[in-house]
Structure formats: structure tokens, C-alpha cells
């Protein structure tokens, strides 16, 4: 699929100016068209055709995430998001203040450019070798008003943050529950965790965003991320359609499942949590 780049305008804060700088360099490297955020906001028709044909690399400067919000508002397909302020923190780089990028800022941009080029290359070439797991058959059903929340009876372990783990061999597949996908409503974006990253139980395994909200995926297990569900990049709605099957998030090579289990719930126990949460949601 064709790609285009949408970034922060870079006129408000230093992180924004670095987002803009990254967009320009990415354009120089890849030739992908840059979408001007101001023009898109004022005359959306200018980019209508492009946004139908292309998926976006969205580059936000700060957590206000104007570029992401703009992409969302235009119903654009998003392939990849970069948040410069977060990356600066993760990489331990402290960019100079002011709107003209200084040496540290440019170092950060160079690093991000390298990362995004590598990731886009890997995604294009990665052959998925993920094991087929039979879909769960027996469900507990928690009913609240007009809502029904399904919870697999067997084989799935949950944490109270609405993530599940399904162990097979030395690994576990991880995802989010039917309850939380319904609460989020239509999921529009999946930000995957880093492949090969070490994750602690209750650590972050990426985020998912819906038109309504944002969820940090809280890992049910400790281990190393060995696979990511790349289908979700093109179709994050799979999490809504099939949260316990095709909408899985990642696979983790387990460090110590027995120890993780101490803080995990079986289907029955999680059903009690869902009952409580659904009652609280209703107010």
C-alpha cells in the first residue's frame, strides 16, 4: 500500500519541530508524500484521494498528539505512529529548547529515522510463523443491561486490567478481554510493543486506541515478546471482532508462569471482576 507522512506542524514546541524535521527526512529517504497538517485541517478535500489510497506514518511531537487526532478525524488509515517526546525519554536524549533543532534534537531525529526505516523494512519482509490455536468453545457469559461479555471457561488466565494470557508450551499468547473491547468501542489503532523486548508482569504491552478512549495493554505475564499480531496494523478492528482469537496482541516467551499465576485469575474469578466493573460503569 502507498504511504504518506503526517506530522505535527512544529510551530508550538521543540518536540514538534523535531517531529517536523523527522517527517522531512523520512520524505527525503522514502519519497512518501508529506501531508501538511494545516492544509489538511482547513481543506480536507485537498487530501481526500491520497488518504483513500495511502496509509499514514503519523509523527506527533508531544502528548497532545494533534497529528494523531487529525488522522482520526479524517478516518485515515494509520500504519505507524511515532511520539517524539516519548522516544526522547526512552532514548535518554534531552533536546535543546527552541524551535530550531540543536545537536541533541538532530541526534534524536537521526535515531528515529533509522528505527522507522528498519521497522518498515522488517514489516515488509516478515513472514508470519505464528501457530494456529483452536478458538475457545465454552464461554461464561456476564450479562449487564443490553450487554453480554464473553469469558472463555478454560485455558485463559486474566489480570484485573482486562488482559488475558493463553499458555502453550513455553509461551503465552496475550490479548484483551471481550469486556474491555466492548467498553472501548471501535478500535482504530494498535501500537505494538517492541519485538524481543523484555516485559514484566503488569508492564506495558503496547496500547490500543478507539474513537472513544485509549488503553495501555497491561501484560498478564513476564517474559520476552517473540511475536506481534501484525494483522492488527491493517485491521485493528479484529480486536473487536474476535478478542480471544484473531484479535490477539502478542506472544511472550514465559519466564516463570507459576509465579505469574499468583496474580492471575481463571475465567470464573475474572467473570466476578467483570460483573463488578460493568455495575460500576453503569454508575
Amino acid at each position: 500500500m502507498k504511504r504518506a507522512i503526517l506530522s505535527c506542524s512544529g510551530m508550538d514546541k521543540q518536540m514538534g519541530s523535531l517531529a517536523r524535521e523527522l517527517a522531512i527526512r523520512l520524505n527525503e529517504k522514502t519519497g512518501d508524500e508529506i501531508v501538511c497538517p494545516t492544509l489538511l485541517a482547513s481543506i480536507p478535500a485537498r487530501y481526500e484521494e491520497l488518504l483513500k489510497a495511502a496509509s499514514l506514518i503519523v509523527i506527533d511531537g508531544c502528548n497532545t498528539r494533534c497529528a494523531s487526532k487529525l488522522a482520526n478525524r479524517c478516518n485515515a488509515k494509520v500504519e505507524r505512529k511515532i511520539l517524539v517526546s516519548e522516544a526522547a525519554r526512552d532514548l535518554g536524549i534531552d533536546p535543546e529548547s527552541g524551535l530550531t533543532p540543536g545537536p541533541n534534537g538532530l541526534k534524536l531525529v537521526a535515531q528515529l529515522l533509522q528505527d522507522v526505516e528498519r521497522d518498515l523494512g522488517e514489516e515488509a519482509s516478515s513472514g508470519s510463523s505464528v501457530m494456529e490455536l483452536a478458538p475457545p468453545e465454552d464461554f461464561l457469559i456476564v450479562t449487564h443491561d443490553k450487554y453480554q461479555f464473553k469469558i472463555p471457561k478454560e485455558g485463559f488466565l486474566f489480570n484485573e486490567n482486562d488482559s488475558w494470557a493463553r499458555a502453550f508450551g513455553a509461551k503465552a499468547r496475550v490479548g484483551v478481554s471481550d469486556y474491555v473491547q466492548q467498553k472501548l468501542t471501535d478500535i482504530t489503532y494498535f501500537e505494538p510493543p517492541a519485538l524481543n523486548a523484555d516485559v514484566e508482569q503488569f508492564g506495558e504491552l503496547g496500547t490500543i486506541e478507539s474513537t472513544k478512549s485509549l488503553l495501555e495493554i497491561v501484560s498478564p505475564v513476564t517474559g520476552k515478546v517473540t511475536a506481534i499480531n501484525l494483522e492488527l496494523t491493517d485491521n485493528p478492528g479484529l480486536i473487536n471482532e474476535d478478542p480471544y482469537g484473531a484479535g490477539w496482541i502478542a506472544e511472550v516467551e514465559l519466564t516463570d508462569l507459576e509465579s505469574d499465576k499468583e496474580l492471575l485469575l481463571d475465567g470464573e474469578a475474572y467473570a466476578e471482576i467483570v460483573k463488578r466493573k460493568a455495575a460500576e460503569d453503569a454508575g
Binding site: N161, Q201, E216
Partner: peptide, 25 residues
Amino acid sequence: VVFCRACGKTCGPDAISFPSKSEIL
């Protein structure tokens, strides 16, 4: 919500912090 940090991800000036997850755990 224990271990939820989502509001922090909406904060433009990055003014919101949370405790360390491993210490709380």
C-alpha cells in the same frame, strides 16, 4: 485504576507521572 496510565498519554506538556509499577507490584 491500578496500573492504568492512560491519562498521562493524553498530557501535552507531560506533567503527569505515576509510581514505578514494579515497586507497586
